[in-house]
Design a protein around this nucleic acid. Sequence first.
DNA 1: ATAACAATTAGAGTTAACTCTAAGTCAAGA
DNA 2: TCTTGACTTAGAGTTAACTCTAATTGTTAT
Lengths: 145, 145
Amino acid sequence: MEYSIGQAAKKMGLTVHTLRYYDKEGLLPFVKKSASGLRVFSEEDIDWLVIIECLKGTGMHLKDIKQYIDWCREGDATLGKRLEMFKRQKAKIEEQMAQLQRHMEKINYKIAYYTEAVAFGSIDILKRNRCLAAEKERIFGPLKK
Amino acid sequence: MEYSIGQAAKKMGLTVHTLRYYDKEGLLPFVKKSASGLRVFSEEDIDWLVIIECLKGTGMHLKDIKQYIDWCREGDATLGKRLEMFKRQKAKIEEQMAQLQRHMEKINYKIAYYTEAVAFGSIDILKRNRCLAAEKERIFGPLKK
DNA sequence: ATAACAATTAGAGTTAACTCTAAGTCAAGA
DNA sequence: TCTTGACTTAGAGTTAACTCTAATTGTTAT
């Protein structure tokens, strides 16, 4: 199966502008052109886009994604670099997950706080709520004087 | 305990420039000034910064964070809006976690792929590896012709 | 064949979130 | 007192990643 730039964009949830921008930045050196100069995306090219989205979605910059793509084009000599790159990215994702978990605790505290506040129609009464205070200290850290 | 802008920046892992930028954008309306015009961050102000970092770190834009801070200043009438905001943010975090998990599967496939490739010194042999191919189809989706 | 629509390029413009500079003020130690 | 270093403001500059425009060419349905 082959795709025009518009079909590829739709499939990936990107705009044609973005795909052309990626191409200009050297992220799509594998995409072929038809006789009349139109980009033709193969099923394999879609896999490349999926990996680009994956790396971008885990915080890698386009220039570093390009580095990876350049390594791929250099052949087997760069296999080790590519493996190390993915291992580093995995560690980054694990840290992101841990960070998200910590953020989630704070958000959950706020939801508990505001649920109480909405029930009472005011935050004043919460200032003497020992349960929420203990929870806050656990999540936000102890107070310093 | 009170902090100068430099101490607050250090504590939060931000620069003084960033804190002043946040202030300029209306994110720190609670920070007081000393007689000579220096910003003085209280322990409570640090809690505000922690929440700002939490919302920013889960993808909220500064202008939406400002909206939340403005609601806080409007008083109890906005409690419901604030609760709904945190609930939406919680849903967003859950989606981010699911997304990260999906990205992680792809990265794990790549690590398995490149670990094999490095062991053989080449990617050629992998093209007949049915185990990796099945794994790829499971994670990247079935091929279309 | 002609209208409507999708594609091409080069290059300008936008947005968010900083990041820094200039010119100056303030506070503490030798 | 003098120096050092942290602070102040207004405002300019930077960066990444788009996002769009203009002018043009190619493709497809009736």
